[in-house]
Simulated scan of single mutants.
Amino acid sequence: MKFYFCPEYVNMQKGIDSLCGFIRSNLMRDPFSNEVFIFMGRNKKQIKIHCCPIKLFNSSITY
Rank of each mutant, 00 (worst) to 15 (best):
T62Q: 13
F32V: 04
C52E: 05
R24Y: 09
D30A: 02
N26A: 14
M1W: 06
G41P: 00
C6L: 03
K48T: 05
Y63W: 11
K14Q: 09
R42S: 08
Y63R: 08
F57H: 15
Q13R: 15
L19V: 08
E8D: 08
N58T: 06
E35R: 02
P31Y: 04
N11K: 05
Q46H: 05
K14M: 09
I54A: 09
I16N: 07
T62S: 08
I54V: 15
R42Y: 04
Y9D: 08
R24K: 13
K55E: 10
N43R: 06
M12W: 00
S33P: 09
K55R: 13
P7N: 00
C51S: 11
I23R: 06
T62A: 04
I47D: 10
C20P: 04
L19P: 05
N11C: 12
D17P: 01
F3G: 03
K55C: 06
Q46A: 08
E35D: 13
I54W: 08
T62H: 10
F39Q: 02
P7A: 00
I61L: 13
P7L: 02
K48S: 07
M40P: 02
C6K: 03
L19K: 02
Q13W: 06
G15N: 13
M12I: 05
R24S: 07
I23Y: 02
K48C: 15
S59H: 09
N34G: 00
I47A: 10
L27A: 07
C20T: 11
K48W: 10
I54N: 08
K55L: 10
G15R: 11
M28N: 12
